[in-house]
Design a protein around this nucleic acid. Sequence first.
RNA 1: GGCCCCAUCGUCUAACGGUUAGGACGCCAGGUUCUCAACCUGGUAAUCAGGGUUCGAUUCCCUGUGGGGUCACCA
Length: 475
Amino acid sequence: MQKIRTRFAPSPTGYLHIGGLRTALFSYLWAKKNKGEFIIRIEDTDRARLIANADQELIDTLAKLGINSDVAIKHQSDRLALYQKASDKLIDNNNAYRCFCSPERLDEMRTKQQKNKQVPKYDRHCLNLSKEEIDKKIVAGQKFVVRFKIPDNEIIVGQDAVYGKISIKGQDLDDFVILKSNKFPTYHLASVVDDHDMRISHVIRGEEWMPSLPKHILIYEALKYALPTFVHLPLLLNPDKSKLSKRQGDVAVEDYLKKGYLIEALLNYVALLGWNPGNNKEFFMLDDLIKEFSLEKINKAGAVFDVTKLNWFNAEYIRKIIIQNDKRFDQLISNAESFLGKNSHQAKKVLRLFGSRIDNLSQLGEDSKFLFDLPDYDKKMLIFKKSDLAKTKEAINLALGTLGKIHHSEWNQDTINTSIKDIIEKRKLSPGDIFWPLRVACSGLEQSPSPAELLEFLGKEEALTRVKKAIKKLA
RNA sequence: GGCCCCAUCGUCUAACGGUUAGGACGCCAGGUUCUCAACCUGGUAAUCAGGGUUCGAUUCCCUGUGGGGUCACCA
């Protein structure tokens, strides 16, 4: 049995994209499910678009999410000899040829073709250069690229684990470049050579690569490499169904992390884009995904990336973690701290108060502001809609008296609630008569966590100060 | 435009050729209640169209339509 080996091969031209994350995740899951190996490989063959340190940031972001390479990470730029060798072999076997056409000539050719409503395609100007001509040009220092020679009249048939059989006529293909004039390989050559060299069993990548699958198959065959299993993943889409891109909303994984999305939620949501477990289960931690992932359940149609549902997952995870109160809660707290600024030392208590009221940690700062700085409010706000001024005054004064008698050590929700309910019963008040003004007194808001929670959070001293302030307003 | 791929509620999706087409998000309503959220209950909403094949098509085939991807010395 062949060992399952997958890879994620980003090019270091920017940050990790949500779509990239999904591809990396599926590759990782398939390897882990089969006790195989997952490999990260850096495809840095485009020298022009290269961004310094982007490779490391890509790797770090994946690591944060729990996705790590099982072997040392290689860069294609360190392996040029390998591609050169493959290119030479292809030339020797007459599967490829040198092309000395200048970019200007190619541009001209293409515009002419387009003007004539033809498909832009290399005209094979250099296909039949004689050995002497080639040598002369090389000696003269002329730059050249190496092009793969597409066999005429051949139908290339490929097999994909998701899409099944896909076939294309050779005549629809262009003699594509495999080695650039700077001796760097193009993606097509480099990825085939590397996937073979690294004994990749499953090539898992986005659907946008499907049109070049025939080219890759041709290279595999010309190089006499055994074909891996190809797995093309349906695209992630914008709400308008175009390929997910930075237009409306963020696409960088780091942006989501910075905005307060939890890793668990991100992975869970992304895993369910283009894949399903075959049942109604929808909560998956990484380990569950490894257990249940399968290639058969990958969809063909693209999936819209819908932040609304991500938000729901995020809210669910925030609540779950707070309720379970295990070590993940500590991580959540330190995560929350970054959104609370100078009040970060209160992160744990703020989370308890707002955990069920937010779907994102980034809301914490704004939502909890009133706890640290009471906003001004109108005195009319203190009167419950089904109550009146007299009753409100009576209730809040009674509350002040009762609360004042609670010892500091007893100052908690339960005691507070018991005392207030005691007043309600004895004085035949309705809960709204007393709870409502207490809420407004503590928060200056009409919507907030319950008064008892607020009172406890504020602590006896600050709580009573706010209640007294309310009484003064009513006077 | 050429080539390739795709098509179930608004979105993510389920359904050996036989189901009142299921679940989730969202939305709406009700319940709980001092507010909001959470929570519970219910509701809303889909097989792109037309032809076949079949006793029977969401499902298989064809055509159309729609959407997307791709056509670089970028990946």
